[in-house]
Design a binder for these strands. Structure first.
Lengths: 210, 210, 210, 210
DNA sequence: TATGAATGAGTTTTCATTCAT
DNA sequence: GATGAATGAAAACTCATTCAT
């Protein structure tokens, strides 16, 4: 019944709606992402949403999933083989800039924060975030392996802290229209990273400070 | 005309509504904090809200303000005189537990994240957050003063990072019902703090790790 | 029980509320003459209205009655002894200017047109207008008495037409902010009145116009 | 995209809502013409109004416009070629009866008088009334042309007076349920019209009445 | 696939009115 | 006499969703 062509057309239509949903979330937030608004953004009829998705909630989740998976692939590729803080900070700065510029991260965050209402929704959003925690842990382990900190620092908690920091920075940044503070933070990170790398790959000796 | 008794009665009525708003935000999120829901939570008539506040938005802002000022005072007192990481982490853990238990922090966050929609609202929320950035910077400076890091680490950016981290942790924690990950993070912090304090108050010597 | 002083105070309070109602009607129309708005205009509490009047409707009727009786007395006095069109138009122009300037006529009209909703209200408003029809008829009779038109023209219908004209002119005039058209009409009336007076007090002979 | 059939369906739906609005205005007045009431009158859902019109105000204006244009066309046709008062009064009596019977004139008047509140609305209503002033002036000119009154009587002001009279009569008539007074006025007009026509088309000679 | 029309339940807000003081 | 607080009902309008085509 459903030929590959059919599937492709259907997928294209869904993608169009998802894109409109992300744009609307970005511009108007979770509360403003109504069926009418999304349809207006995408230039199609409200009812079309219900032809392709069960409900608005389902559409927003699909949009979050699509964005999350696409970005995770990008992040994986960009951080492939990175084992030191200096290049990590450099790459993360670039990735954050991409995210901030496109506005899709803001859209995704809207879905995440907006989903607190229903426990069921919350559960499903969490499932979408899990790969990010795993990925962050993976990167942290790569940084720590072979250093004196490997035993000392719990990679899992550090990864969690990094994701939370990234999340918090983006949330707060959306209030500063110029993202000045977020950028300053990244710059400070870049300045301190070489020093931190030195510390990471050295033997530490602590001398009492009288 | 308006005796002190009058003022008190009025303030009490306002406080009652603000409390209902916070409870509703906590239980149902920003989108669920409707006039009807708040009135139901507080056991009063919807119209009473409009007798004491100009609009729902105004009420939510008042609630955020009330919470923010009350908690900031509490944080200031709790961290008074703290100059080392170890007691800082201990106090912060306790404060976070208070916040998490009462649910008001979650309520406040709902207002913050929910306010992204309107630029004007965003502006007003930012004004309420500013004292927190200032307070965080003050605490960070107290930790760094007199150490080798004083010149090295930009206190302002570090303070911003801490607020963002705290904010991000709380946001993510609201998805884990048991707050397991957040607690694990605090525990790791407690474990590492004494070591970090040692580093902070020592002269560092880096020996290359062959 | 109720001394004359009491009565006077009470009457003064009522008058204050009635004045506020008229001002509010004038500025905001029938729909805008809410309890809150009237109280704000008069600088007293909403509840005070209900202490002195049964309901808003009752207050508006009282206001209409007060205005109607006061103005009718003024009109009676001004048109006393007038038996010709020329002075009649001159006096009416002056009276209309008074009414237009004070804005109370507009207020009264709001009550009249606004009262169409309820048959009972309509009935009561009509009762207040009846003296005006009678007065207009009286004036018309004074103009016609002793002329050839006395038998020809039905005074009652003419009086009705004049009241309706006056009413219509005022209604339409409230759309022209400058009342230009209404004033032009009065001026034309003044110009034609002497001619009409000539006709009124002459024997007419009609000569066919070939 | 939008076939003629589509357009027709949409127009029919709008017409249905406009008709319901007029009926509701007629029965319940401006203040009673609420979304709920109009929907109940028309037997459709409240929300449908907002699907076809931007707001209640917009709907009422559309209703006024529709009525005004339809009736103006009817009046134009009926008074086509009329140059004497006698047939004019006869036709106007018939037209007024049509208007009074259908109740739509009352509805239209509700919008007009109700629109005093907002200056913007007032402006838009005025625009709809302008063609009526022009039409009335046109008719008046037709009556006066070639008579001795042509130079004497200002057609524009007379036209304004006629519209105001018509307007006032209708407003007052809505208080008399039987419209007795309005009808009496029309009857008197019919009785006097032939005489007035004689006067209009004669040379006047005034003889002093001793 | 896609659309315009339609709906029931919900939103914020305002109203007239009452109550306790 | 007068007031601030409080309320139930209703206003305009919007939402997610469905239906017929």
């Amino acid at each position: 019944m459903s030929s590959p062509a059919r599937t492709t057309i259907r997928a294209a239509a869904r993608a169009r709606i998802v894109a409109a949903a992300l744009r609307t979330l970005e511009e108007s937030g979770y509360a403003g992402a109504t069926a009418r608004a999304i349809a207006a953004t995408g230039g199609f009829n409200q009812a079309l949403i219900y032809y392709h998705f069960e409900s608005i909630e389902e559409l927003l989740l699909a949009a979050l999933k699509e964005f999350s998976e696409r970005r995770l692939a990008r992040y994986r590729k960009a951080l492939e083989g990175v084992t030191e803080l200096t290049p990590l900070v450099r790459m993360m700065t670039r990735l954050y800039e991409e995210d901030a510029k496109s506005g899709e991260l803001a859209a995704a965050q809207e879905v995440v924060t907006g989903s607190v209402i229903s426990p069921e929704l919350r559960q499903r959003v969490m499932t979408l975030m899990d790969p990010w925690f795993a990925f962050a842990e993976e990167v942290v382990r790569r940084l720590l392996v072979g250093t004196v900190f490997e035993e000392l620092v719990p990679a899992r908690e550090l990864a969690y802290a990094f994701v939370a920091l990234y999340f918090g920075v983006e949330t707060l940044a959306r209030f500063d229209n110029d993202r000045a503070r977020a950028n300053a933070l990244f710059e400070s990170g870049a300045r301190l990273a070489p020093l931190a790398d030195l510390v990471l790959h050295s033997d530490l000796e602590l001398v009492d400070n009288p």
